[in-house]
Computed example of a mutant assay.
Amino acid sequence: MPHTAHIRSHRKPRNRSASTIAMRAGVASGVLSLAAAGAASAADAGEPVTQTLELPALTADMANQVAQSADATQQAAANYQLRAERDAAAANAAKQAKSDLAHAKKQAAAKKKAAEKARQEAAERANRSSARTTLSASAGGSSASSSGSTATGTAATVVAFVKAQIGDTYISGGTGPNVWDCSGLVQAAFKQVGVDLPRVSQDQSTAGTQVSLDNLQPGDILYWGGAGSAYHVGVYVGGGKFVGAQNPSTGVVERDLSYDPPSGAVRVL
C-alpha cells in the first residue's frame, strides 16, 4: 500500500446542482438526437429532398390594386395611341392645306393671266376695228397723195426688196435668202439701205418714230400688238397695201391693210 493511502484529499467535493445535471442531460440528449438525425440522413441520402414553399394568399385588396394598375396601364396606352393618331391627322391636314393653297394660288395666277390676255386682245380688236374704218374710208377716195403711194429714195429700195420676196416660204426664225419670218424679212429689207434694225418684232415696233395709221408712207414698219410687245411686223408699200411674211400657209404675201389692220406703225427712214 502506498504511503499516501491514508492521506485524505484536500479537494472539495463538487456540488452538482439539479439544474446543472439537467443541462448536461439535455446536451447529451441533443447530441444523441443530432447523431440520430445524422444517421437518418445518411440512411436516406439516396432519396431526393422536396421542399414546399407556401406563398402568401392573394387578398381582395391586393387583387383590386392589381386590377386598378392594369386598368391604368391600359388607359395610358389608349391615351398615347389617341394622341399619336391626332398628331398624324394634324400633320396630314397641314400638308393637304399647304397643297391646296399652292393649287389655289396657281389657279388664281392662271385666271389673272387669262383675264389680262383677254383684255389686251379686246383692246387690239377695238384698235383694228377703228383702223379698218379709217383705211376703208381712205380707200374709197383718192388716197395716192394722202397715203404716199409712191415710194422714193431709200424707201423705194426697201419696198422693192420686200416685193421681190413675195412667194417665198415662211419659217419661224428664217432670215433669207428664200425663207423668212416676219421680223427677219423686215430686218433684211432695211439692211439694203444701211439701217440695222433689231431682230425681233417687239423691238422693231419701237425702232423709229410712231406714226398715225392714216398718215402712212411707203417704207413705214407696221406692227400688230402693242408697241414694245408686238407679235407681227410688215412693211407698208403704198396704195393701202403691205408686204409681210405672214405664216407657213401663205408665206410672204402682199395684202390690203383692211385684210388685217395693224395696231400701229413706226417710221425709220
Rank of each mutant, 00 (worst) to 15 (best):
S149T: 15
S147R: 11
L216D: 01
G251V: 12
A43K: 04
A94R: 09
L135D: 08
T206G: 04
V31A: 09
P261S: 07
K191Q: 13
S147Y: 12
G234F: 01
H103R: 14
L34F: 10
G30I: 13
Q51L: 13
C182S: 08
G140F: 09
P2V: 13
Q210W: 01
I7T: 15
A122P: 06
A5L: 14
N79R: 07
E54I: 15
W224R: 00
Q96Y: 12
E121D: 13
E47Q: 08
I166F: 06
S147Q: 15
G174Y: 02
A227C: 01
D214T: 03
P48D: 07
G153K: 05
A36Y: 06
S145P: 10
A36P: 01
P218I: 14
W180V: 10
Y170D: 13
A70N: 06
V253M: 10
A91K: 07
T250K: 01
V233E: 01
Q81V: 09
K163A: 06
T169F: 06
Q68V: 14
L222H: 00
F242E: 06
A102M: 05
A90S: 11
S229W: 00
H103G: 14
V253K: 09
L269R: 08
P13G: 15
K163C: 07
V186A: 00
G239P: 08
P48I: 08
G208I: 06
T73L: 10
G228I: 02
R267D: 14
A131F: 04
A245S: 11
A245Q: 08
